[in-house]
Design a protein around this nucleic acid. Structure first.
Lengths: 230, 230, 230, 230
DNA sequence: TATGAATGAGACTTCATTCAT
DNA sequence: GATGAATGAAGTCTCATTCAT
């Protein structure tokens, strides 16, 4: 999203650095409680220079939201459209979701806490994206019920359990902490699928099937780490 | 936390009303983005009168946090100490947690989103209470592992799954909406226990055991709805 | 235009004083070049208190414009509708226009110089009022042509001469200066009517007819000084 | 007023273009409300390059004022010194004044509206020029009274009528609009002279005398269009 | 010549809080 | 108990200007 014409080559780089720094500060103190002056101190720029790069404070918030939502939606749309069984797709969706969360923890904090500070069109767009994401999850769950893998559940309630389990993770996970996305995804899915599955559905080989599937693909799925090849 | 000594009889009542109104506003717009002027409009009081009752804006936040944490901790401590099997206690803890969330949805919004605006001692105390709550959950989960109900799990990871599932509920539940605490608790626990249980542990009669236990108690557990008696 | 409910009795008074002071400053330095801080110094109020009264800087500009346009339009509409010959009505319109200008010289400065700082609806409304005023003048001139008092002139060009002559007065007239509205109006009209009149039209008794008319009226015309009675 | 010594050949040309563009912008939005950034966009130059040409924003304003005042004063001084009857000189002065206004409408807007933004010496010089111009007009009017063409009028009041009539024209005239300087001058002077003249003074042949005079001159008067020759 | 980056003062405005009445 | 008025710090943002490259 390049800004007015006539910016030097370093502009976009510095701009991205400023967004990084801002996300960290917003995550720590909250968007509304973080002043432009603080951002200036943190970036080493005077207020005027800051505005040269950011346009407005709300703009910063928009960029942070985009950094979270854009790559996530790309990955999730791709995974949802794959031609494999829905439970496997859910497992992959779970992992890319957690990878996205862990990769930008502070962005996700801001994303979850401060979207209410967005106004007008920015807010509308964000809510639309959220709804699309939730729909993709719900559709996968319904597919799994339809093909007999899962019991007949209230789709909305199943979706919410899925989202609860994943989306709250940002609250306690720490960067460089004990858990990686793969571990968390495996555990979360084990729990959720145990709860959702039909007695006849066997969950035990899911991890193997995932590994196999990813190993066999020629092109990697963006936003989903493929297992290291031997 | 009554303020200046010597208040008339209506003081505390009006004070509580103000906190109610504030919680609703904070939940809708965010603590930092809600001004004292707005609180004045909403309560029908001039700024001066407002301060007569509230002392300071941060004070309001403290009261809201207390309203969430105090009754919850009372209930949860009581349940954790009951002399029944740990899985049943978890089930009851789950339900009281959800009852608390549903009973004060807007307070919980504020509690989850704006505790970072607390400073100094207020903040410390809140974090201590959170940690106590989480410990109580974790200890119950460990008990259940120790008595063979649950598999050997990483206790922290099991705790976090439990908390994820419950604590994110405030994000989408609506007052007077489709789900009550009992339904949600039953579903959540069904999922979680399916995931955590030893293959040998039978979960099917949990709901019956809970009903039985509560029916047989002479004194109700505060913050946990007893089943209607016939 | 009372502001939010709950203002004391002195509020409106002080508010009007602030508008007075602001008009003087804006007239001297220009709207865009006068800062809120200066208004504060001039009114003896801190910036915050200023906003308690004014709402916004643009609001101040709106009020100033209103103070000019409202009473002027009231008077001019009233005069245009009188049942006397159009040249006499023009003479009276001229005088009330000049009385309005002289009465609020600094307001008129602001009105003429800074209306371009108004935005949106405020600007639209102002332009509409200007156009109405000009139309009333033009219609009177046309009436005077139709009844044979004036030659056949280009109505627009005649209007503009009338307006040029009057509206530029604010540029050099000084409060408490040498000329009053009656003198100016008499001179201006003498010149204009000499230029506009049909050779057959006699202008010499206009001043007498005006005095007579005003003396004979029972109710004074707002915004038009009646001659002192003997 | 060329700036740093040693400029290339295109310097002055570009400089003049920048002043043109600035005058247009200042006229539309007001001097104080037009930013250097906007000037940059409008001229296609970056801020740095702009300053290479203009020195400072106030400098631009000075140049614009000069462009209005210099040629006008040159013409008016020349006309005032001509050896013809004062009423004819007034008629010519009127026309050159209007030609100057129409030729640089946006400059005149700025000249009339924003001279208060000038400071110190720049301001003083401008006011001196204005006063000189007004004196020249006043002296001509007095001459016309002295030679019996005009009645005995208050010289200041007559001057102000003359200036009102002409100087307000910029407010509504449009470039390429319906009226040219000659038409306006003829009409304005017809009105003013009708009002000012002695009953014995005949105004009817003024236009013929003007045409004759200009046709007979060998050298044209700068800033005053001579009639097309047959 | 020309640029983009940077500055720092100052613009308008909001806000939690106090206090005389 | 309650009010409206006042404060002053801090908020976001704009702007004329400078300067290394």
């Amino acid at each position: 999203m390049p800004r007015p014409p006539g910016h030097g080559p370093g502009y976009e780089i510095k701009r991205q650095e400023i967004i990084d720094t801002s996300a960290a500060l917003f995550a720590k103190k909250g968007y509304a409680s973080t002043g432009i002056a603080e951002l200036g101190t943190a970036t080493g720029l005077a207020r005027g220079a800051l505005y040269y790069y950011i346009g407005s404070k709300e703009n910063l918030l928009v960029e942070i939201q985009n950094r979270v939502m854009r790559p996530l939606l790309v990955s999730v749309r791709r995974i949802a459209a794959l031609d494999v069984d829905p439970v496997l797709r859910l497992r992959m969706l779970s992992q890319t979701l957690l990878e996205n969360i862990l990769a930008r923890l502070d962005h996700v904090w801001v994303y979850e806490h401060d979207y209410r500070s967005l106004k007008g069109a920015n807010r509308t767009r964000l809510l639309r994206q959220r709804r699309e994401f939730e729909s993709l999850v719900e559709e996968l769950l319904v597919e799994a019920m339809d093909d007999g893998s899962f019991r007949k559940l209230d789709p909305r309630l199943a979706t919410l359990q899925f989202l609860n389990m994943h989306n709250h993770t940002y609250q306690w996970v720490k960067p460089g902490g004990d858990w990686d996305a793969e571990t968390l995804s495996r555990e979360y899915c084990a729990t959720l699928i145990s709860g959702f599955r039909n007695p006849t559905y066997h969950v035990d080989d899911l991890e193997d099937r995932m590994r196999e599937y990813l190993a066999q693909r020629q092109t990697p799925i963006p936003g989903l780490t493929s297992p290291a090849k031997k």
